[in-house]
């Protein structure tokens, strides 16, 4: 099977297969950008229509958790990149260690976000509906803000969970990869860092813009 491992039958060379995998993932990320696009667009549009209510909603979010989570995700992208550099230099062991750290940082984000922050939000009654905790003129607009908040973070979280699965898959398959042949590590890395970029848009929308005014 060594020939089949070299490249799949439809490609003329392993090089071609690598290029196809990388460009396929970039294209997929383009679809992901457009997938999240409508949330960001609607969010900014709705905020523009009722800024004070969105500010009121935003002030009920947990800035410190958001900030910590941003740090965790950025660090996990960094550690993933280090892992990628390790395998490019032929260190499989280094790759496994750094990817495991990246995985743990991502998992910590999930734990903080949904185990701690969401629980606090729900306890405070911030889920939109009849029992919504914010009263006064900002009530309806703040509900809209929290509709975006729960929807957006849930979807981002789901993508992150998929990412955790992929990183774990790379770790378990580590012996397949060498300095010359590690396209899957690079492909998963593209996805993993892309999730951060989504978060880097969500973070200011949730925590920062409303506090600035």
């Amino acid at each position: 099977m060594s020939d089949a491992e070299a490249h799949e039958f439809q490609f003329g060379s392993a090089e071609r297969q690598h290029e196809a995998a990388i460009s396929g993932m970039w294209l997929f990320l383009a679809t992901e950008a457009l997938f999240f696009g409508p949330i960001f667009l609607s969010w900014i549009y709705a905020r523009h229509a009722d800024p004070s209510a969105f500010d009121a909603g935003s002030r009920h979010t947990a800035l410190m958790i958001g900030l910590t989570n941003t740090g965790l995700l950025l660090a996990s992208s960094f550690t993933y990149s280090v892992g990628l550099a390790c395998i490019a230099f032929g260190s499989r062991r280094g790759m496994v260690i750094w990817l495991a750290i990246a995985w743990a940082l991502g998992a910590a984000f999930i734990g903080l976000k949904f185990g701690v922050e969401w629980r606090m939000d729900l306890k405070e009654g911030l889920f939109p509906g009849p029992n919504f905790a914010i009263h006064g003129p900002a009530r309806s607009g703040a509900q809209l803000f929290f509709a975006f908040y729960f929807f957006g973070t849930a979807l981002h979280g789901l993508h992150l969970v998929v990412g955790l699965g992929l990183v774990a898959w790379i770790i378990f398959q580590a012996e397949r990869f060498t300095a010359e042949r590690h396209s899957p590590v690079r492909v998963v890395g593209l996805y993993w860092t892309f999730i951060d970029i989504i978060w880097l848009v969500l973070f200011p929308l949730i925590y920062l813009i409303g506090r600035a005014s």
Binding site: S42, Y45, A46, A49, D50, A53, P128, G129, S140, G141, Q143, L144, A147, F148, F151
Partner: peptide
């Protein structure tokens, strides 16, 4: 779907949606 399930969402004019 979110709007239909939870009765709240971004296309609902009652809460400032459009």
């Amino acid at each position: 779907a979110f709007e239909r399930i939870f009765g709240i969402g971004v296309f609902d004019p009652k809460i400032g949606g459009d």
